[in-house]
Simulated scan of single mutants.
Amino acid sequence: MDEVQRFRQALVAWAAGGAEAGAAAAVARELAGGVVRTVVLVEGSSDQVALEALATRHGRDLGAEGVAVVPLGGATGIGRFLDVCGPSGLGLPLAGLCDVGEERHFRRHLERVGLGSGLTRAELETLGFHVCVADLEDELIRAVGAEGVQRVIEAQGELRPFHTFQGQPAQRERPVEHQLRRFLGTHSGRKALYAQALVAHLHLERVPRPLERLLAHV
């Protein structure tokens, strides 16, 4: 296990609390500021995969640069992670990515830990926190285009399951972009799989703004 991964696991255990929290906090403190210089808080593993894949396409290795991309396991966990990473915890530089529906959680807890007051969207971005509209999958589908996404699905051997999904009564009348977005979230692990595949397929001049700005920030 590399040191950034060790830090990430320790941070998750510390934020979760419980019997292991003390030992996990010690490991996180040991690695903070040395091995790890910045923490990027994202909602889930698909966000982590997308950001790291985009960095690779730009010739960057975030782990080697000391940037730890940490999935929260859901946006409501942002408060616990800011408590352990923020000014009253490790005091590390922070950045992040969230869906537009979860922006209020991020804003409220950033303000609570002293990183701003009455934060606007622009002020969130200045802090390094960026918002996907409506979510990462929606951003990537719009950037790649519906036809391009279907080519990626075909390359993954899932075009027939997608066509079957399109034929479901609840999906038949919906726009193909909506069908694609729902399809990417139907099975566990599919979002992360397609996050990586779509970023690999993406023209770099069409990178979704939240991903582009976040990567530039770190």
Rank of each mutant, 00 (worst) to 15 (best):
M1F: 04
M1K: 00
D2N: 15
R6N: 11
F7E: 02
R8C: 10
Q9T: 05
A10K: 03
L11H: 00
V12Q: 03
W14G: 11
A15I: 03
A16T: 02
A19V: 13
E20R: 14
A21P: 07
A21V: 06
G22E: 11
A23M: 12
A24R: 07
A24L: 12
A25P: 01
A26E: 10
G34A: 06
V35E: 13
V36W: 11
T38Q: 13
T38L: 06
V40Q: 05
L41K: 07
L41Q: 05
G44L: 03
G44R: 01
S45L: 02
S45G: 01
D47H: 08
Q48D: 01
V49C: 00
A50R: 11
A50N: 08
L51H: 00
E52Y: 07
E52L: 05
A53Q: 09
L54D: 07
T56C: 09
T56V: 10
T56E: 15
R57S: 13
R57Q: 15
R60M: 14
V67A: 11
V70N: 00
P71F: 10
L72T: 01
L72E: 05
G73H: 00
G73D: 04
A75H: 04
A75Y: 00
A75M: 03
G77M: 05
I78F: 04
G79H: 01
G79T: 02
F81D: 14
L82D: 01
C85F: 06
G86V: 00
G86Q: 08
G86M: 09
P87D: 03
P87H: 04
L92T: 01
L92P: 01
G96Y: 01
G96C: 06
L97F: 15
D99V: 03
E103N: 07
R104W: 05
R104M: 04
F106Y: 15
R107D: 02
L110W: 02
R112Q: 12
G116H: 09
G116M: 00
S117E: 09
T120F: 10
R121A: 14
A122S: 15
T126F: 02
L127C: 08
L127A: 08
H130D: 05
V133F: 13
L136A: 13
D138V: 09
L140E: 13
I141D: 14
G145C: 09
G148A: 08
G148Q: 10
R151N: 06
V152H: 12
I153P: 14
H163Y: 14
T164H: 12
T164W: 04
F165M: 06
G167Y: 06
G167I: 05
Q168D: 13
Q168E: 15
P169F: 14
A170Y: 15
Q171T: 04
E173M: 03
P175Y: 06
P175F: 07
P175N: 02
E177L: 07
H178S: 10
T186K: 11
G189Y: 09
R190K: 14
R190Q: 15
K191Q: 07
L193V: 08
L193N: 07
Y194D: 11
Q196M: 01
Q196L: 12
A197I: 05
L198P: 12
V199W: 03
A200Y: 04
L202N: 09
L204W: 13
L204D: 11
L204E: 13
R206C: 10
P208K: 04
P208D: 07
P210E: 03
P210M: 02
L211V: 04
R213I: 01
L214F: 11
L215E: 03
L215I: 05
H217R: 10
V218M: 11
V218F: 15
